[in-house]
Design a protein around this nucleic acid. Structure first.
Lengths: 289, 289
DNA sequence: TCCATTCTGTAATAAAAATTACAAAAAAGA
DNA sequence: TCTTTTTTGTAATTTTTATTACAGAATGGA
């Protein structure tokens, strides 16, 4: 094997050939790697809820003669991580089936991603990030049949960083009430790729008439809603498939989230801290029941 | 509360009160911390050019009862280092490049995508695509807080190609009725990345008890639901941001959709044709109003 | 339903690691 | 320069850890 395989990779690749106890142990190891494997065999066994011989069986299954040899590679890897954290690049050539559909797909989607992200108008990107980071301006989001998932994801993640973020409901006939709340201070983020949805365009026109600022994320053929949008970000959607990909659009959304976070890091951090404590409290609550 | 003193701090502070051999050892430890102290007492002694009792004398001088106690604090400190997303962001922010955030983000997400897709077990991928392409087997999908969007997207797209595809509702207390419909013929597709959701794991165990075949899409630390999953596909989730990315997972889902479509192209094409006509009829209907 | 095979945990054993005892070397003070 | 104290390494002992043997449980196939 030409490619050096990390312990984590070995554990993942071997997962399907493991017994139940081994899989439980491997999940535990991977769940808090590398900390979970720093102790002794009996410590690891106890933490994972398996026996000590199971630990030895697993590392032998991974190709080591015993746990000391496994630990040696662990220490080597930790040395490499500390020496050069961003040193590695995985290659495609090692994969034995270059014509596998997954590999053909991968090439295409990565090209799309490259194209989408490299061809963004950075001024538009920065403007949109600034608008969405502005907490005095409520943000409403909407999407179509496939893009609604992206809109929902964006809403969930953006809501972690700021309040006044809402996803419009699915059914167009519930949209008019939302219009009543919108004014010049509001921002509407629309996700619309082919097939463009007439109901989205109608709503965009009505929102525009209310003075709402409209951000449109669409494909390269540009949704008809562009006529009333102030800011347009485009994504590639073509792959060797019968329909479109949303991977570049999701990546664009995550890039926006990252930029918004940078602008409001101090406040975002406080919200994250609070949310962390909510999680901990909920877990504690569950434990006490 | 006084600030917790790290092992490195202790070593530095104690340097002036050390003997020659101890100072030689401490310099060695600090020179390549923490790697230099991961081995056994005799290994460390040999590497530093002192005797094993000298190692024990030094850690006792630092206030530990023996080397195992020293090692315990070492492991605790390493655990803290690998802790929270906030720490991750601060690390990334410190190393920021002069480039635009979007370009930095692009590099990272493409690396992740490369890593995710190149490291897939093609046999597991093909097996999962085959299972999901089998129209005699109903497919149920579920996701967590962020991954629900991916599950929803997968459901919408898969439903274009075949019937008997259903997304479980959002609220866990609505899940048990869905269990009543599931048997050994059914397939459950679970999206679960950290933070893993206990309700998902509980449902997975119940579904497993019913004989349902479980496909798990998770991150590289492997969701605890892995214990009852027959097929596991992993995705990278780490980006230079305070939380995770789902771009690789979305790409993996689209790759599966593409593979499923290839297997059933003739029937998929017919469904697409019919859907095209539905669209056209609806547009015509709207034009006539 | 029964039998054979595989898996897993417990206990025993072997190996490794940490600590202690002791003696020699080095350093400091008179 | 000599004596005393401190430091340090070697060897022995103790403790801990890893591995192996074995038996019971679980699973799968006939």
């Amino acid at each position: 094997m030409t490619q050096f395989q990390t312990l984590e990779d070995k554990l993942r690749m071997a997962m399907s050939g493991m017994t139940r106890a081994e899989r439980q142990l491997a999940s535990h190891m991977l769940g808090n790697f590398p900390l979970s494997v720093l102790g002794s065999v009996s410590e690891i066994a106890q933490d994972a809820g398996v026996s000590a011989p199971t630990v030895v069986r697993l590392v032998r299954k991974l190709g080591f003669s015993g746990y000391p040899e496994f630990r040696m590679q662990l220490h080597e890897e930790m040395g490499e991580r500390l020496a050069s954290p961003i040193a590695k690049h995985e290659k495609w050539a090692d994969n034995s089936q270059p014509d596998h559909p997954l590999n053909r797909f991968a090439t295409s989607v990565i090209d799309n991603l490259n194209q989408t992200l490299s061809q963004q108008d950075l001024r538009v990107f920065d403007t949109v990030a600034g608008i969405l980071a502005d907490k005095s301006r409520p943000v409403h989001l909407m999407g179509g049949r496939l893009t609604r998932s992206v809109a929902e994801y964006f809403t969930t993640a953006l809501h972690v960083m700021r309040s006044d973020v809402a996803l419009l409901p699915s059914l167009p006939n519930t949209w008019p009430p939302a219009l009543l709340e919108m004014s010049e201070r509001d921002v509407l983020v629309i996700f619309d790729i082919r097939r463009y949805e007439p109901s989205i365009m109608q709503f965009a026109e009505l929102a525009h008439a209310q003075g709402v600022e409209i951000v449109l994320l669409t494909d390269r053929w540009i949704s008809p809603s562009a006529g009333v949008a102030q800011h347009i970000l485009t994504s590639q959607v073509e792959v060797p498939s019968a329909w479109d990909t949303i991977v570049p659009m999701v990546a664009l959304v995550e890039a926006l989230l990252s930029a918004i976070q940078e602008r409001n890091w101090q406040e975002t951090r406080e919200r994250l801290d609070r949310m962390e404590r909510f999680y901990e409290d909920m877990l504690l609550f569950k434990r006490m029941r």
